[in-house]
Amino acid sequence: MSGFRSMHPSVAVVYYAGLLLFTLLLFHPVFLLTEIAALLGLMLLQGQGRRIAGSLAFCLIVAVPAALLNPLFSHRGAVILFYFMDQPITLEAVLYGLMMMVVLISVFVIFLSYNYTVTPDKFMYLFASTAPKSALITLMTLRFVPLFQRRLRRIALIQGARGVSVREGSLRSRMSDGMTLLKTLLTWSLEEALQTADSMKARGYGIRRRTSYAVYRLDRRDIRVLAGLGAGALGTLWGWFQGYGMLMLYPRLKPPVFTWQEAAMYAAFCLFAALPLWVEGKEKWLWRSSARKSLPSAIQGKKGLHWTGYRSQ
């Protein structure tokens, strides 16, 4: 793991939690589009282009209807564009629908990126010290989801040979076949769970308060990035309290005016949203050419490597 993924889990959780918060607080296309662009850029740098393409369809299926349906059901607003089946379609409602679409897309992209960066074990690691048992149980449960999927695939392959299949037959027989498959999965898994319980007991589960093995260390880079994220978040929140970053659509569209305060808030937001992109991009830049003779280093003062431009001290 490299780049943003290699950072301490708390950095990533702060980042995604902050983005989610701002998505819900800030109702402004510029901010949201910046956010989406930053996340997509991050994922592309992480080599996740295929993942984005794969989930794009699903995302649009959910988001586009929101944009289309809002003007049909909401008729608030002052500027009427045209009438559709005797219903007034207002500019405000159209824009509001579009904004909803952007919000949905950005939430979707946040989770897409979150899933790649914050694996369940990282998330649990953060909570292991406060609630060790619940963290363990959650982790074990999370493990069962892909485990059961793998087992179900194997069962379906075998049971298909005896005519139990959810792919063919009437709806009723499919459903009963599905139940048969689930039953096989459950009996098998419970059988294994008995052995798992034995093995847990033999390894001393439940005799003392659990400690947590730490694989992650909060290093200086993590602290610097956290500080940067914190500054960005504070700046953005300050702007929000001042009432910036909100696009007024209802009851009537107010033409957006950019003041210097709002520009400062936007800069803070950009710092917050784009910091991981910078972390990731810097590492990509270090490795950009495979023909390089010396090993790349980000540490300042080494001859010939000034162009890496690392100047945070």
């Binding site: 074990d121 982790l139 052995q195 093995s199 947590s212």
Partner: peptide, 18 residues
């Protein structure tokens, strides 16, 4: 069936954490 955790290091640490 004896394995409790998702990744190898978690599995190894499991008994010590207990």
């Amino acid at each position: 069936a004896q394995i409790v955790m998702e990744t190898v290091w978690q599995e190894l640490a499991f008994s010590m954490e207990n």
